[in-house]
Write a protein that binds this DNA or RNA. Structure first.
Length: 294
DNA sequence: AATTCTTCCAACCGCCAAGTT
DNA sequence: AAACTTGGCGGTTGGAAGAAT
């Protein structure tokens, strides 16, 4: 079936965004919100493709974006998640508050992949390419030091990224988790009933009979950690689809939200984010052990 | 100082899946 | 069910900037 271009290409600006365009887009989105990307350029008075606007906003203009200065904890997490997930940049980025998939991907391609291959020169490692949000070189040098990495063998869970439209979740559990979704083990809710999910894309045997409770993913990560798709057919839980189903948009447990947008946000001190990342790393340790035992 | 080489990353592209008509 | 739209993803690339010669 044919696919029309997202917008007419004629007369549109391409390439780097000007400060004026950035202001226009930011102002429009602040007023009208995200979405409707196709119509946005015209309404906002931008000579850009909607797709380009979306990308610019998501990767650069969003207020919650962190840029540069990828911490050691974040780097470690990227490596671990990449080991588990492969090039699933959006999933990986979803676990790094304020980081975009593009940034993680670039960081991997330009730095980490070389580092993992042991081919990174000291020169590269010491480069000062960190930039501030305006794209100017920053005076703060935070490029991490090279360090020996243990193994590069991969346990990649290769699932197709699919849109999660429904999450089968009993109301009570949802409420429990909403009230306790920090990563402090002491305040986690009681163990949830195992939710057995199936991946209808069948791209990974690992996904079959995957028991979330074994990994306490629902406590630590959100349900789309493995891009689980519960569509009312492929589920085998105590719960049934239907009126009790929560749509994805209602599902409040992405790690990003847990760390950044949580209703309990006030309880996080500035440095606790790093703490949370460390906890996530601990989780990944147990995750890897579990997978090796399979 | 001028030129060439290297690196980085913002932006683009094509594709896919879900949603809508 | 088919046709189409929309949003999202990962791979790739071009240009800017810094490093090397």
């Amino acid at each position: 079936m044919g696919r029309s271009p997202c917008c007419a290409k004629e007369g549109l600006n391409r390439g780097a965004w000007s400060a004026r365009e950035d202001r226009t887009l930011t102002s429009y989105i602040n007023t009208h919100g995200e979405g409707k990307w196709r119509d946005l350029p015209q309404k906002a008075g931008l000579k850009r493709c909607g797709k380009s606007c979306r990308l610019r906003w998501l990767n650069y203009l969003r207020p919650d974006i962190k840029r540069g200065n990828i911490s050691k904890e974040e780097e470690e997490l990227i490596i671990r998640l990449h080991k588990l997930l492969g090039n699933r940049w959006s999933l990986i980025a979803g676990r790094l508050p304020g980081r975009t998939d593009n940034e993680v991907k670039n960081y991997w391609n330009t730095y980490l992949s070389k580092k993992l291959q042991g081919k990174t020169s000291q020169n590269q490692l010491n480069r000062t390419k960190d930039k501030n949000p305006e794209g100017h070189p920053s005076s703060v040098e935070q490029v991490p030091q090279a360090k020996a990495l243990k193994s590069t063998t991969s346990h990649v869970i290769r699932t197709r990224a699919v849109r999660c439209t429904k999450v089968i979740l009993p109301q009570q559990q949802g409420n429990q988790m909403m009230n306790t979704h920090n990563l402090d083990g002491k305040s986690l809710p009681p163990p949830l009933a195992p939710i057995r999910v199936m991946d209808d894309t069948s791209t990974s045997n690992f996904m079959m009979d995957f028991d979330i409770d074994d990994l306490f993913i629902s406590d630590v990560l959100n349900s789309d950690f493995l891009e689980v798709r519960c569509d009312g057919v492929h589920h085998a839980t105590d719960h049934e689809c239907g009126n009790n189903s929560n749509s994805c948009s209602d599902y409040p447990f992405s790690a990003h939200e847990m760390l950044e947008d949580s209703p309990n946000e006030a309880m996080f001190e500035p440095n606790e984010e790093a703490l949370e990342l460390k906890k996530l790393c601990s989780f990944l340790d147990s995750e890897e052990e579990w997978m090796e035992s399979q």
